[in-house]
Amino acid sequence: MTSRSLATTLGIGMVAKEAIRVGLDRTIPTRTGIPLRADQVTEQWLGDALGLTPGAIESIHVVQQDSGTAARARIAVQSDADIPDHLFLKLAPHNYLQHVLMNVFALGTHECLAYQALGSNPPVRIPRCYVVRVDRTRRRTFLALEDLSETAEFRTVIDSVTRTEANAVVDALADLHAAFWRTDRFAHDLAPLAVRSAAEIRIGDMIRRRFLGEITGHTADLIPEPTKRQCRMLFEHSTAIDAFWDSQPQTLVHGDPHLGNLFFEGAAPGFLDWQVAKAGAGIRDVAYFASASVEPDLLRTIERDLVERYARRLDTAGIAVDGDDLWSLYRAAITEFFLAAVCTAEAGARMQPLDVSRVGVERAVAGVLAHDSFTVLAAFADGKRV
C-alpha cells in the first residue's frame, strides 16, 4: 500500500471513528460532563465552572442561540456574585455532520487552546474568557466568553474596512505574531496547534480535491478557466506547499481573520472565532485579512503599505524581517483566502449565504489575478526564490 493510500485509509477511518463518537455522545447522557446544549447549562454547573460558591447563580435564561461550525448562545445570568449578567457560550454544533467535522479537525479544542494561550493579558483584543472546558473522551468543548453584543460593532464579509481600520488590524496582527514568534510552546502546551496527523492532512486534501477539482457552484462564472486549472495545485502539490510554509518562522496565527470574525470598539479591532488557530507564517494572516476584508480597488492602492507597516511593527518588537521577501510571501499567501472562499462557495448555502460567498470569491479572484499568486506559490514550493 502506498503512503497516499495509507493516508486515505487512515483519513476515512478517522472520520468513521469520529462519526461513531459523535453518535454515541449525542445519545448517551452524561450528568457530570460538559453540556451539549445551551439549555443544559444549569445554575450549579456554571457556578462550579466559574468557581463560585453553591447557589451563587440564581437563574440562567437562554436569550438567543444559533448553530454553524459551533453552537452559539447568549445567556442572561442572575447572580449576586461578581460576574457579568450576560455571557456568550460556544458549544458543540447542533448539526450532526458539523459536529463530526468539528471533531475531525479538533476545531473546538484548538479554539480552547488559543484562548488559554492568549491568557488574561492577550496581545490583541479578544472577548474575555471566563470558562474553558475540554472533555477529551467525548471531544466536547465549552467556552463562556464576554458578551460583546451591546458594546462592539460586528460586520460581515460583504462589508469592507477603511484604510485606517486596515492599518489598525495589521498592527494588531503584528502584535499577536510578535508575542508568539518562534515560541517553544509549540513543542509543549501548544503542540496540538503545530502538528497534523497524516490522516488529517489527507482529509484536507480530499476536501480540496472535492471542491477545487471541478468548480461548478454558483460562483464558477467569476473564476477564469486558467485560474481554475492553477488552483488544483492546492491539492496536487499540497505536500510541497505545506513544507514551504512550515519552513518559515512560525507563530500563532488566527487562521481565519476575515471581517466576519472581527469586531470593532470604536476604531480598535478585536478577534473572534479562533477555531482554526495554529502555528504558521504570520504573513498568511495579513494576506487573508486584506484579501477578504478590503474592497479590491482600495486594497490595490494600500496593500504594499500594509505589508511594510506589518514589517515595521515586527521590527519595533525586535523581530527583523526582509520587506521584499515579506511582500513576495504576501503575494503567495493570497491563495489562502482563495481556497477558503471557493470551498465555502462550492458548499453552497450550508456554509454561508450565497451573496456573502459570492463577494468572497470576487475578492479572492481579484487578489490572485493581481499578483499572479499561484505562479508565485508554485515557485516557492519548487524551492525557487521569488
Rank of each mutant, 00 (worst) to 15 (best):
C343I: 15
I283T: 01
V276C: 04
P249M: 08
A277W: 05
E303F: 03
D325C: 11
A287N: 06
D256Y: 03
P296F: 00
A332N: 08
A267C: 07
L262Q: 01
D246L: 14
D297E: 11
L329D: 15
Y310D: 04
Q248N: 03
D256S: 12
W274C: 06
A333S: 10
F235N: 00
A292L: 03
T251R: 02
A311H: 03
D285T: 02
E295Q: 15
Y330P: 09
F264G: 03
D322G: 09
A240P: 01
D315W: 11
F235K: 00
A317H: 13
L262D: 02
A333P: 08
A290C: 11
A341W: 04
Q248I: 08
K278D: 09
G323A: 09
H254P: 06
A277Q: 11
Y330G: 06
A279S: 13
D246C: 13
A340C: 13
I302C: 05
R300M: 12
K278H: 09
L326T: 13
A277P: 07
E303C: 05
W274K: 03
I319F: 12
E265I: 11
K278M: 10
F244H: 13
C343N: 15
T301N: 05
G318S: 08
D285M: 12
T301M: 02
L272C: 05
Y330L: 13
D297F: 04
D325Y: 10
P296E: 06
T301R: 15
I334S: 11
D325M: 15
D246M: 14
D273C: 06
I334H: 12
A317D: 10
R284F: 07
L298E: 14
W245C: 08
L252P: 03
R312N: 14
A345G: 06
E308S: 15
G266W: 00
D305V: 09
V294H: 00
G260Q: 02
Q248C: 12
D256C: 06
A333W: 04
A292C: 08
G318C: 05
G282P: 00
Y288K: 04
A333M: 12
E308W: 15
N261G: 04
D305M: 05
D322A: 12
L259Y: 00
W274G: 02
